[in-house]
Design a protein around this nucleic acid. Sequence first.
DNA 1: CGCCTATTTGATCCTCATCAAAGAATGTGG
DNA 2: CCACATTCTTTGATGAGGATCAAATAGGCG
Lengths: 279, 279
Amino acid sequence: MIEASVRKMPMFRSELRPAPSMLDTRLASFGFLSPEEIAALKECGVTRRTLKVGGELVREGDQVDTLYFLEDGWACQYTTTRDGRRQISALLVPGDVCNLDALLFRRLDVGVRMLTTGTVLAVPRDRIATLAANWPGIAQCFTWLGFAENTILSRRTLCLGRLSARERLAHLLCELAVRLGYQSVTGSITFAMPLTQEHIADTLGLTPVHVNRSFRQLRTEGLLTSTRGTIAICDVAALRRAGEFQPDYLHVQDLRDTPTFEIAEYDRRAAPRTLDRLR
Amino acid sequence: MIEASVRKMPMFRSELRPAPSMLDTRLASFGFLSPEEIAALKECGVTRRTLKVGGELVREGDQVDTLYFLEDGWACQYTTTRDGRRQISALLVPGDVCNLDALLFRRLDVGVRMLTTGTVLAVPRDRIATLAANWPGIAQCFTWLGFAENTILSRRTLCLGRLSARERLAHLLCELAVRLGYQSVTGSITFAMPLTQEHIADTLGLTPVHVNRSFRQLRTEGLLTSTRGTIAICDVAALRRAGEFQPDYLHVQDLRDTPTFEIAEYDRRAAPRTLDRLR
DNA sequence: CGCCTATTTGATCCTCATCAAAGAATGTGG
DNA sequence: CCACATTCTTTGATGAGGATCAAATAGGCG
């Protein structure tokens, strides 16, 4: 059962050479990247790192000069207060860039760590910068990714600021479903969801206990079924309504509308003063 | 007084032409833009629009093909739920781009409206796109702006998810102080703050009543003084501690030459027509 | 099988929401 | 310039959603 649903998740199917991973698929689906550009990205010499649950990629406040592409497993960006409260500011699923900000900022004020076991591809950021300078689509792609994160975060502020616990949970599950590739599925959706209720709590600004109660509420309303590690959304439309979820989340269908727009390359030489920031 | 501080700002000292706008300053201070690029931006043919309090720039869910640069006054991005709850996802101060996302997304799912009277510069997005294609620094500048918004939003999730009302308010005031240019000021800070307590409530996910009580709390703790339209932070360090505020917010020290300037008492009626900006 | 972590449920408390209404500023029209 | 309307701020009283504390149950894993 879980097997089946896990298999449905578009994960990295490794053969000899990197077969289309979630990352490839994601990048390709944007429409920004030409085949050559994708090839360039894949050839740019990355290190693959395997990490355990809780494995740390970036400590809060660290200097970072590496971009991590999440190949497999889930991760998160988080912040903690001095007295130990934790807020997860971003959940990362296969295909996401773990620390996009590191492209422009030397220091990250969020920490990044694995929520499951998994693998990341580590790329020095100056190598990415070089790529971006040579391939306009690549620069544009990263810009797009940044803006997409923005959209997610904007929406999250609505969740955290104005939605009830039940609504927040509903919204999160809808969001994850879309980000995992089920944006066009109506009816019911089943997917693997390795987050613990504590992770969800830290994402939604709640306590684990209350997350549990919200789950029960949604379950008794018949909106979803959840077993350990798997979520089954029974009625997508109803859950979206319950969570104030905008169906065209992330403008996924916009992507094909905006092909001709070009953001110029990141070119250090042309703008010398930016040097220290891109390297 | 204002004269003196404005004069401290580095770029564009032109005699007859009014002093550099906040927007100029902001763009220049990033260090991404060469003088030629700034000139290009200013020549790209913009329309200036004057708006009243509550004036709408973008309706939630609208198709948008214009970028609005906030020249004067404050604005916000917001979302509303079906039953009318409102969350402000971004506060915009002079110099900010109101709807940066419109650069890449056709549709905006947030609304944008003025919180005070003010003026914006409207630029068709394909014109910006052309500029970005010709001037690397401009493309990079917009990318940087997007990433900066990201940082703010990440931090806001911590506020909304894990901080108490008092902490949230403290954090917001610290954030605004930095964004208004006081990042390097220690001791005390006084600045004009045209937000009503209801705006603040919608930003912090609270009710106006509770915002008022949080204000009183901070006031009785001696951390700040507030009169209508003006905030005086008595002890910046203490307020930052109270709000879990990271002093190197927005990575501002990465940006060189951040000018120190004073924002005058906010005047609703006749916002001083100081500037002739991008044009 | 036993340890450990995650989920579930109950009881109580507290922060913040809600409802209500009285003051202060500000704006408007005469 | 005053009188009135409007908006914003302030304070009080009460209520609810979610936090906290505690403990039992259920899974996963060596």
